[in-house]
């Protein structure tokens, strides 16, 4: 693999002030502050190839954003090696900064008090984009993201979703080689999320841009990333395909059934009696049931169900990825596997 990003034993330790509660402790800290070391990222290693789309997942405070900030050059690592596109990010060389773009859900590149188009012109000049390239890229991005009518508006007057689209336009105007996306769909409605996901997918395919994304929305990760890196408490706990992770961790499937209206009120007990193996009813609404069953018991259980209860519908689906991830966050990968 031709690695565009190489991370070896990367570590970041924050020194944070700590103190006991109360007036005396707070007075003491004025003269003799006490610090404690917090390990945000602990000796992680991975490599990412050109054009890959990789998702960083993990619970809050896991170290995902800190890793992303070290990759972009915003933070100096405490130790370890990081190389992105042949550069050491924290040296912040001009040539490096022109190759990357970082979209942070809670920070804006757009200037608040000027029109979106004026902001885009500023970015054009900073990144020294030629008039011809600017026009061509702007037309393309405006078309794909449908932001034509937003260009003459002030950034402060845009809605969250509108601003995100303009933010993405600003981030891609100079056609970066590597894109860091930190919670890019945070707080957005479902249609905007879907649109952005499709956009990033197309953009990656068209320009072979390497994309690293952190998101708490598993739909973002599922639809965009061929590979996930799971970080928990600063440690890398899994690096591979999301489906692989899910099937290793969750050997269960969900069977959804709708019993006939006039069916027996004792259905609940009947369902449980259909199989001796590991199973549980995880949801029930009127005559609709969702049952979690071990993959190996699916055929036997389904046959038994059809025999014992009159059904109007039956579907078998994978366990929702959110449930799998929740299990990992709570119990850790090793315990889960």
């Amino acid at each position: 693999m031709n690695s565009e990003i190489i991370v070896e034993n990367l570590e970041k330790i924050y020194r944070v002030p700590v103190r006991d509660s109360g007036l005396i402790a707070s007075l003491k800290s004025l003269f003799k502050p006490i610090y404690s070391d917090t390990v945000a990222v602990s000796k992680i290693s991975f490599q990412i190839g050109k054009g890959e789309v990789v998702g960083f997942i993990g619970p809050n405070g896991a170290g995902k954003t800190t890793t992303l900030k070290m990759l972009s050059g915003l933070l100096h690592p405490t130790s370890g090696r990081v190389e992105v596109a042949g550069f050491t990010p924290f040296e912040r060389k001009v040539e490096y900064l022109k190759k990357i773009s970082m979209i942070m859900g809670n920070k804006t590149q757009l200037s608040w008090d000027i029109t979106v188009l004026d902001s885009l012109y500023v970015i054009k000049e900073i990144y020294q984009v030629s008039d011809e390239d600017f026009k061509q890229r702007l037309d393309e991005l405006v078309g794909l993201l449908e932001i034509e009518e937003l260009l003459p508006k002030m950034a402060r007057n845009l809605s969250l979703g509108e601003r995100a689209k303009c933010e993405i336009t600003a981030a891609l105007l100079y056609q970066p080689q590597i894109l860091f996306l930190d919670e890019p769909t945070l707080g957005m409605d479902v249609s905007v999320q879907l649109k952005l996901r499709n956009f990033f997918k197309e953009y990656n395919q068209k320009y072979n841009t390497t994309i690293i994304i952190t998101s708490h929305y598993m739909a973002d990760i599922e639809s965009l990333c061929s590979r996930v890196i799971l970080i928990n408490k600063g440690n890398l706990v899994y690096d591979g395909a999301l489906e692989e992770l899910a099937s290793q961790i969750s050997p269960f499937k969900i069977i959804k059934i709708a019993a006939a209206e006039d069916s027996n009120p004792d259905n609940y007990a009947k369902i449980l009696n259909c199989i001796d193996g590991e199973r549980s009813i995880i949801n029930q609404r009127e005559n609709n049931y969702s049952i979690r069953v071990h993959k190996k018991d699916i055929a036997k259980f389904t046959a038994s169900l059809i025999e014992s209860i009159p059904l109007v519908d039956l579907t078998v689906v994978d366990a929702p990825i959110e449930a799998v991830i929740d299990q990992i966050y709570r119990e850790g990968v090793k315990q889960c596997i």
């Binding site: 970082m102 920070k107 804006t108 590149q109 900073i126």
Partner: peptide
């Protein structure tokens, strides 16, 4: 406020 990050990511 941490918004200085935006300035740091620019190539100037």
């Amino acid at each position: 406020a941490g918004t200085f990050s935006v300035w740091l990511l620019r190539p100037l």
